[in-house]
Amino acid sequence: MKALVTVAEVATVEDEFEIDGNAIDERYLEYDLNEWDDYAVEEAVQLSEDGLVDEVVAVTIGPERSEETIRMALAKGADRAVRIWDDSFDGLLDVAAKTEVLQAVVEDEQPDLILSGVQTGDAMFGATGVSLAAAIDYPWAAVVNDLEFDGEIASVHRELEGGVEELTDVETPAVLTIQTGINKPRYASLRGIRQAQQKEIAQKTLADLGLDGVESELELTEMYEPEVESDATVFEGSAEETAGELANVLREKGVAQ
């Protein structure tokens, strides 16, 4: 049983930042393993530790910079990695483009279980996992926050809105999109980090995957900071002064009376 985990390196933005054209100025970005994918990696590694999965392969679409991030997935227990990049990738890769690339990887790898974070923290499309499932004709379940797997059937909880969970059975091979909170992602151990240096990261281009090129039909044409419509009364001064003013307001509202 082989598990494929899609991982993405995402950019997080500092509180204060500037926009340069249609992108955030590089100086204000930090790169990290996508939060949702961290949980997906952990889930796959736990299945491997439980003996239900023989091999965990991490796949990412990302430039050379993202090797550091995918190595984190290896340090946490993934067995090997595949990194896809092509010089033709620029701007926004839409869901269809990512799906096409990942579909080619699935054809190479033939995984039995694919785990994918619910969304990425930067583009926030939240659609790649289910789109991939449709493209490769695997059953799927989206927004999974609990997984019991017997080697054939994945019994999952899907986290709906309003504190309700839907219980669903999905037959493998399958794609599951993983929600935060499903487990407690581990920190990479020093030993894990050392071992990760020896693990394989296969680099592939579109041509290596047998693709001529992928096209995004979505074009990002504008980026701006949303207007802040705050009409909050903001207290100024030292912590003692602001806390004092807030305390007065709270007392007026009858708090702690």
């Binding site: 839409d94 659609a127 499932a133 449709a134 899907r158 809105e161």
Partner: peptide, 23 residues
């Protein structure tokens, strides 16, 4: 763009070959 919308919307888009814009 709900939990259920994201459980079938991307599949619809992919099967029909339509670009998808979410959220």
């Amino acid at each position: 763009n709900t939990v259920n919308g994201l459980d079938y919307g991307p599949a619809v888009a992919t099967r029909l070959g339509r670009p998808l814009v979410t959220d």
